Computed example of a mutant assay.
Amino acid sequence: MNLIRGYDPETLRELIDERECAMRLEEIEHQRSLPVLLERVWLLKVLDRLDEALELADETVRQARMAGTRKDLLRARVLHATVLQNRGAHAAAAQELATCAHEAEGQGWAGIAAFAYQHHGKNAYEAGDFDSARDSFKQSLFLRRSAGADDTELEKALRAIEAAERRSTTTPGVLV
Rank of each mutant, 00 (worst) to 15 (best):
L34T: 06
A91L: 10
E59K: 13
A98R: 09
E52I: 01
T82E: 15
L37R: 11
Q31S: 15
L74V: 01
K71V: 15
L47G: 07
K71Y: 11
H102C: 10
G106H: 11
A94I: 01
T99V: 13
A114K: 10
F115T: 02
E39K: 05
R77F: 10
V61K: 00
N86G: 11
A98F: 08
L47S: 05
Q85N: 14
A98G: 11
G106T: 08
A91Y: 10
N86K: 15
A114P: 06
D72H: 04
H30W: 09
L43H: 05
E59D: 12
H30E: 08
A104N: 03
V61P: 04
G68A: 03
E59N: 12
D48Q: 08
E105M: 14
L44N: 04
L43Q: 08
H90P: 04
C100L: 10
L50T: 12
W42L: 10
L56A: 01
A94T: 15
V36M: 00
V83M: 09
V78K: 02
E96C: 12
E103H: 05
V46H: 08
W109K: 08
W42D: 02
H80F: 12
G111H: 01
Q95R: 14
A89W: 13
L37N: 00
L38A: 07
H102P: 00
L34A: 07
R49Q: 10
V36S: 00
H90Y: 15
K71A: 14
G88N: 14
A98N: 09
R75F: 12
Q107T: 06
E39S: 11
R40Q: 14
L43G: 12
L37V: 00
E59A: 03
R77E: 14
T69D: 07
E103T: 12
A104F: 02
H30Y: 13
S33H: 09
T99A: 15
A81P: 11
A104P: 07
D72E: 02
D72A: 06
T69H: 10
R32D: 14
L50S: 06
D58E: 13
L73R: 01
Q63H: 04
A116M: 13
G111C: 00
R62H: 11
V61L: 08
G108H: 08
A89R: 08
Q31V: 13
